[in-house]
Write a protein that binds this DNA or RNA. Structure first.
Lengths: 248, 248
DNA sequence: CGGGTTCTTGATTTGTTTCAATCGATGTGG
DNA sequence: CCACATCGATTGAAACAAATCAAGAACCCG
């Protein structure tokens, strides 16, 4: 069944798709792309486009019960919190991806903007309804969960069994691979933006700021990377960096 | 659309459901339960029931491309491997759950029996076909992936930010919660079987055998737990154990 | 230019690993 | 039935990697 409008006479003009949607990554290659025009309009009707500065919490907890956020641009950190101010970032989200996904039990994970972030706030119940009536949407969300699961498990190995040096090197390779919306890793030598501060990197890798900083310095001194400033780096010697990451 | 056989005359007797299936947890409350009798028969037609002793690898790598395993009984460990013999267990699987799930990109995760394990080997392509034609099945698999994701992220916090003591205490509470197929945690004082050796626990928690052992001893000496033997424990003082786990 | 924040670097401490030895259970063969 | 080997678990001592504590240096923004 190809996407089509239901119960509309052929002569009758369809309301146009929201302008936001047609240029959105979630439409181009995410969940919204598999919706029928009608369904997309239905979803967009209650959607709310919002911009968040770095550090601000997406999805205020007060309304979190029935909201989820489709990430449109920027990078969001999903973090879990422990007593004593300890925190662990469990995932980095980039477009297209949906934060606080449908059907997931509500947990205590917070979503905070790492960079400036644009999101499309959606009613989770609407998305769940759509997923129930549109198999392709459910499949899309399913695939996305599986990708998140793979990412989480890779991070798990990193946190459980790698040294500080390996973690930081792994992180840099990770950043290189998804430096932006493209699929190809950045070529050797090109400058890559870091969406995270040293503190965030530490919270992602299960280390302290100081240890992360030291490993940056060491990799820099060994000639594996270049660090123009705190928020940028480039891979100078890929072999060396991969060796440091303990690729296995 | 209620589950029903397709293209069968009402007078014609349907072939019976496989006997294995009707008493299987995957049928009772897992993925198989949402299949139509017809679909279930189709899936069962190429399914292969097998038993694995502890330590043996489920899904031999040679045929791993198009096989997945529905766990029927026992506990399986999913592990990732690094150079130097390091390994990290990224999940513990119990029935009903499907290992090497449909639609997941093939990764280097291995599934090894922790206890004696019964599985139902299935063609992944068959399961994927069924998921494409049966929305309820896809939803079931989706929910299951989301549960796995939640588990992975909880472990992530444990590995990234908790001390050895907290990890072991967390693990014991984790075991208590899913000591068996029931939903309720084991009551205080009851004996709980450990499906994992000290070495496995270490590989799950990102620690060494010695450290795990030491934390067991310490919790035992403090009166939080009782340890009749290496493969059993009981919670003597739940408050104390929870405090040690740093619940937050 | 000043004040705050983030990052870097150094010195010291601490928790966990590593190395090594012992213990306990289980099983085997003389 | 009792040495004896084996394997997992425990315990101790030493080494080490990362955390913590403590200054500085670089950077940003008003």
């Amino acid at each position: 069944m190809p996407p089509s409008d239901t119960f509309r006479l052929s002569g009758e003009p369809a309301p146009p798709l929201p302008r936001h949607c047609t240029s959105c990554l979630s439409y181009e290659r995410g969940a919204c792309g598999v919706l029928t025009p009608d369904q997309l309009r239905r979803l967009a009707a209650t959607a709310l486009r919002r911009r968040f500065p770095p550090g601000s919490q997406i999805l205020p907890p007060t309304r979190a019960e029935d909201l989820c956020a489709s990430l449109v641009s920027g990078v969001a950190k999903l973090s879990c919190h422990l007593e004593g101010g300890r925190q662990q970032i469990v995932a980095l989200a980039t477009a297209p991806s949906i934060v606080a996904a449908p059907f997931a039990d509500r947990d205590d994970t917070r979503a905070v903007a790492a960079t400036e972030v644009d999101v499309c706030l959606l009613r989770r119940s609407t998305l769940e309804d759509l997923a129930r009536e549109n198999h392709a949407l459910e499949h899309e969300l399913h695939e996305s969960s599986l990708a998140d699961l793979r990412d989480a498990r890779e991070l798990l190995v990193t946190l459980g069994r790698k040294s500080a040096r390996e973690r930081v090197a792994w992180f840099l390779l990770f950043m290189r691979q998804r430096h932006c919306r493209t699929e190809e890793p950045a070529p050797e030598g090109s400058v890559i933006e870091l969406p995270l501060s040293r503190g965030d990197i530490a919270d992602f890798l299960g280390l302290t700021i100081e240890t992360v900083s030291r490993q940056f310095s060491q990799l820099k001194n060994e000639g594996a990377i270049t660090v123009p400033d705190g928020r940028r780096f480039s891979v100078r010697d890929l072999r060396q960096l991969e060796a440091a990451a303990g690729r296995a």
